[in-house]
Each structure stands twice: as C-alpha cells, then as structure tokens.
Amino acid sequence: MEAMRVKTFLSLLVGFAGFTCQPLFGQDKVDFDRAAVERGRTDFKSSCGFCHGEDATGNRAPDLIRSAITNHDVNGNLLDPVIRSGRPDRGMPAFSNLRDKDLADIVTFLHSQAYAALHSAHVPGDYPVAKLLTGNADRGKTYFDGAGGCTQCHSVTGDLAGIAKKLKPIDLQQRLVYPETRGKQTATVTTADGQSFQGKVKDLDEFNVAIVDASGWYHSWPRSEVKVEVHDPLAAHRELTEKYTDRDIHDLFAYLETLK
C-alpha cells in the first residue's frame, strides 16, 4: 500500500463558463482531418472509453461531448492539461505517457464528436425548456411528496430551493436522471491484518480501491487484498431507476422546473 499527502490539484474547471476565447463550435462549418479523427477515436476507445464511453457521451465518467472544457477548447489548450495530468480529485488517472501526436488526435476526435452532436440536432447550446417540458408539474409534485420518496433526502425550501434558476433546464434534467456521484461516496477498507481505513472514495473498480482519509492521506489497495464496504448516499436514487416510469420522470422534471 502506498500513502501520500494529497496536494491541491489545479482546478482547471474554475472560470470555464466565462471563458472568453472563440470556441470551435461558434463557427458555421468546420472541416476535420478525418484520418486524425479516426486515429483519435481508436486511441480514445483504448485509453478513455471504459469510463467516458466509446463515443465520449459518458459511462462511469461524465459526458465529454457537452463538457464545458471540450466546447471551449482551442487546439487542445484546455483538454491537453486535463488528459495529461488527470483529475486526481475525481478519480481520473493521468495519461502523461501519451505522445503529442496521439493527444492531438484525441482532441480532434472529441471536437468532431461535439460538433456533430450540436449540428445534427440543429439546436442551440441552451436547449429550449419548452422542448423538455412534456410532463405535468402537479403530478410531479405528488410523486415528489409521495411515491418517489424524494422528501426523505430533499427539501424544496432547502437544497432544492431555486434549483430551476441554478441549473439550465437540460442540465437539471441530466442531474435528475444521472445524479452526480463524484465525491459523495465513502468507504471503509479493512486490510488482511485487520487494520481499518475510512475516507472518501477516489477510485473504485473491479481491480483497485483508493480513498482519501479525514487527514488528507491517500491510500490505495488491490481489491483482491482487502474488504471494502461502500457507503453511498445516492443508493436510493439508483434503486429508484428500477421503479419510476418515463411519465414519472417527465412529471418530476416539470415540477422541479417550477422551483424558481
């Protein structure tokens, strides 16, 4: 086991929403190097696809097509540092061994995917709420207060107060269907000699587990050598995905959109 003090990682996302460069997707037409796109697709699948999905639309890790970093990146100025250095605070490993050419191809692939997604839908970046509001707010409130069990953890005068002002409609819908899990899971790890460690989960898959304890120390182990008990505050959300209907989720979204 290796333990080390976790250092503060440069927050590459701070201020990106107000980034002033002219993003690639503001242009009417972009011609991509198709060979570079296909090379990047192959490299992305092998290096990033397991977490971000082979088409970069998200899996265990976030959707990169709608990412603020991708959409404001110019020639890799934002994507390169993230890919090379990783996001230790969010469980993303560094890919410092990638060649400059391979990294440039991955960036081109991500740009082409985001461009295609934007223009194939023929919608602006701020997706109009009218196209999303297909549910009934009154039924949504009934579901929120009753069968959905939402009031066990949430309050419209507390954590959800003004949520419709804080998030764009499409982001609110995505947060509802795919709740943010990073930084919320904790775990208790017990080693073979009986030592117990507790902390926030930083990496957890079939092969490894890593946590940061209350003192800021980073610990990691092979899963096969320890016992892991995960404490997930979003377990109820995951259980609900097997119960709610499409109408339930559309109604619930319509209700949340009234919380101005």
Score class of each variant (00 low, 15 high):
Glu2Asp: 07
Val6Asp: 12
Thr8Ser: 12
Thr8Tyr: 11
Phe9Tyr: 00
Phe9Ala: 02
Gly18Thr: 05
Phe19Arg: 12
Phe19Lys: 12
Thr20Glu: 11
Cys21Trp: 00
Cys21Ala: 01
Phe25Ala: 08
Gly26Cys: 01
Gln27His: 03
Val30Lys: 10
Val30Ala: 14
Phe32Gln: 12
Phe32Gly: 08
Arg34Cys: 02
Ala36Val: 00
Val37Thr: 01
Arg39Ala: 05
Gly40Gln: 05
Asp43Val: 08
Ser47Met: 07
Cys48Glu: 02
Gly53Lys: 15
Gly53Ala: 13
Gly53Pro: 15
Gly58His: 03
Asn59Gln: 10
Pro62Arg: 12
Arg66Thr: 12
Arg66Phe: 13
Ala68Thr: 15
Asn71Val: 10
His72Ser: 14
His72Cys: 14
His72Tyr: 13
Asp73Gly: 08
Asn77His: 13
Asn77Leu: 11
Pro81Gly: 00
Arg84Phe: 02
Ser85Pro: 01
Arg87Lys: 05
Arg90Met: 11
Arg90Asp: 05
Ser96Val: 00
Arg99Pro: 05
Asp100Ile: 02
Asp102Tyr: 12
Leu103Pro: 00
Leu103Trp: 00
Ile106Cys: 08
Ile106Val: 07
Thr108Met: 06
Thr108Gly: 11
Phe109Asp: 02
Ser112Val: 03
Ala114Ile: 08
Ala116Lys: 15
Ala117Phe: 10
Leu118Ile: 13
His119Asp: 03
His122Ile: 08
His122Phe: 13
Val123Arg: 15
Val123Pro: 05
Pro128Thr: 08
Gly135Thr: 11
Asn136Phe: 00
Gly140Leu: 14
Lys141Cys: 01
Asp145Gln: 13
Ala147Phe: 03
Gly148Arg: 06
Cys150Tyr: 02
Gln152Val: 14
His154Gly: 00
Gly162Ile: 10
Ala164Trp: 00
Lys165Ser: 04
Lys165Asn: 04
Lys166Gln: 11
Asp171Phe: 03
Leu172Ser: 08
Gly183Pro: 10
Val189Tyr: 03
Val189Cys: 10
Gly194Asp: 07
Lys200Thr: 09
Lys202Gln: 00
Lys202Gly: 03
Lys202Leu: 02
Glu206Pro: 06
Phe207Val: 12
Asn208Ser: 04
Val209Tyr: 08
Gly216Met: 08
Trp217Tyr: 14
Ser224Val: 11
Ser224Phe: 03
His231Met: 02
Leu234Met: 15
Leu234Glu: 15
Arg238Gly: 15
Leu240Val: 04
Lys243Phe: 15
Asp246Phe: 04
His250Gly: 12
Leu252Phe: 14
Leu252Ala: 14
Phe253Tyr: 15
Tyr255Ile: 09
Tyr255Lys: 13
Leu256Ile: 12
Glu257Leu: 15
Lys260Ser: 14
Lys260Asp: 14
